[in-house]
Design a binder for these strands. Sequence first.
DNA 1: GTGCGTATACTCGCCTACGAATAATCATCG
DNA 2: CGATGATTATTCGTAGGCGAGTATACGCAC
Lengths: 206, 206
Amino acid sequence: MAKRKVRNLLALALLGVLSERPMHPYEMASVLRERAKDTSMKIQWGSLYTVVQNLEKHEFVRATETTRQGGRPERTVYTITEAGRAELVDWLSELVERPQHEHNSFEAALSLVGHLTPDRAIELLRQRLWTLDADVDNITRSLRQMVEEFNFPRVFLIEAEYRLTMIRAEADYVRALLKEITEGSISGIEGWHAYHRDREAPKAEH
Amino acid sequence: MAKRKVRNLLALALLGVLSERPMHPYEMASVLRERAKDTSMKIQWGSLYTVVQNLEKHEFVRATETTRQGGRPERTVYTITEAGRAELVDWLSELVERPQHEHNSFEAALSLVGHLTPDRAIELLRQRLWTLDADVDNITRSLRQMVEEFNFPRVFLIEAEYRLTMIRAEADYVRALLKEITEGSISGIEGWHAYHRDREAPKAEH
DNA sequence: GTGCGTATACTCGCCTACGAATAATCATCG
DNA sequence: CGATGATTATTCGTAGGCGAGTATACGCAC
């Protein structure tokens, strides 16, 4: 499979909105912000305009109009091309079909957690768990509201349900891990304690 | 909290290995590759050298020696500084304490899956599920081997156990989603079907 | 002993991402 | 009616990320 000409995921979202109707970049951002209002994905302005330019360079979109409202900066309206629609479907298919090993910072942190003392790790994990549980509550509540109060069809909510599922799974994992560390039932824990005792001893000796 | 001077997660891993002993960049890469052999995180050479330079610029590491073996390129050995150790612990603490909303490509894809036909989506999700289940099997097996055959302490495996948990959760979610789509029990599905029927109709009409 | 594949070790330059800066207009509140 | 802040809309400079490329040395087969 040939490499994607434009790799930034923002480009996928842009192709998504442009497949509905032509827009100028700022409008694309507004639409995205509206749709994903809860996640409040902070729009990165630099990326937005760069990515649109890249999409144009590779002919996935085409500038079809420039208008001007009063004395405001000129607006360039972009339209998706056939190649753009094809790219959207193809890219989307690939992302759904193949799990990508995305590098997750918590996973990285866990692999290095030995550099913290066990006590400190417990403290931090408790804090994380608290936040995760709060997140789960919030998302659950807003999802319920969307469905029950506003009759929002669930097909439009699957990405939020997915997110909820994953956060809940992480919370459960952290809860179990905390239990094992505090109870000392995870193998190798004495080594972890010992490592940090040895490193502190010399200082205490002074 | 001030922004991190070096943001690339690779830097965290490098500080991790350097906290054990001084090394030259290529050696850091080898050690990382060895440790994370299963995830086979493809070492990105450009990033490696850039990141080490950045770490040096901000005085988290210091070049302490340059040696030469035969006619090979010169090797520069880097040593972690006190500031570097502090950064490692501080950064690590932050990553453990606060869940970051990392942007996941499957989540993005799900939010745009309406652009695929339901039938195609089902097909792709089945393929994904198959891969996820296979991944679960592989990780489970290698974890069991590590613990039972090699007596590897579990504290060194928590990141793998975490990953396993998350993949399993994703697999369960995809399984449930597939059931709901194929059975048509998810609200809004007629709209999804209708949308694609309408788009194909004109072509069929021709 | 010579040829070939692999391991060692790094450099270079392009492209991308990003966020601060700019700048005009609109809403609003006293 | 004039000041203040929010909204609309984009540009630009720069730091960072990455992958292809380079170059030597080592090991092993034949």
